Amino acid sequence: MSDSTPDSDVFPASAADALAPDAPEALQRPRIRWAGIVWGLVFAALATVGAALTWTPRALENLSMIVPQLSGTTLVAATLMALGALALISGLVGLLRHAQRAATRRRA
């Protein structure tokens, strides 16, 4: 009797079995996670700006005087700008991923 199960004929036993030695090199390379890179850069930039705005006691005092004076219109505009920035970053990540897939297809 064989050790084979119905699934063993369809699915590889391990990830190493999934990539045959004769598979194209493009399939064996790890994929670059563009979303992680781009979002990491965005969060690093936000942290830098936040640190710069509160670095000295004088800067923190100036910020604490400015924030309560903001009007509703200014807050709505800032919210719309933040949503636009999120859309821009998401679009950039999508473009980078699309370019990566296209390059992989060209290599294969």
Rank of each mutant, 00 (worst) to 15 (best):
M1Q: 10
D3G: 12
P6C: 06
P6M: 01
P6Q: 08
V10I: 09
F11N: 15
A13C: 13
S14F: 10
S14C: 11
A15N: 11
D17W: 13
L19N: 03
P21L: 07
P21N: 02
L27G: 06
Q28D: 12
R29A: 04
R31D: 03
R31G: 11
W34I: 11
A35R: 05
G36Q: 08
I37S: 11
V38W: 01
W39Q: 07
L41C: 05
L41T: 12
A47M: 13
T48A: 14
T48Q: 04
T48G: 13
V49N: 13
A51Q: 09
A51N: 09
L53S: 05
L53F: 14
T54E: 07
T54Y: 05
W55R: 06
W55D: 09
W55M: 12
R58L: 07
R58P: 11
R58T: 14
N62Q: 14
I66P: 00
P68A: 04
P68T: 04
S71Q: 14
T73L: 15
T74D: 15
A77Y: 05
A82L: 02
A82C: 05
A82W: 13
G84V: 04
I89F: 02
S90F: 13
S90H: 07
S90N: 11
L92T: 04
R97P: 01
R97E: 01
H98E: 14
H98Q: 08
A99T: 12
Q100K: 06
Q100W: 03
A103L: 12
T104S: 14
R105D: 15
R105P: 05
R107A: 06
R107K: 13
A108P: 08
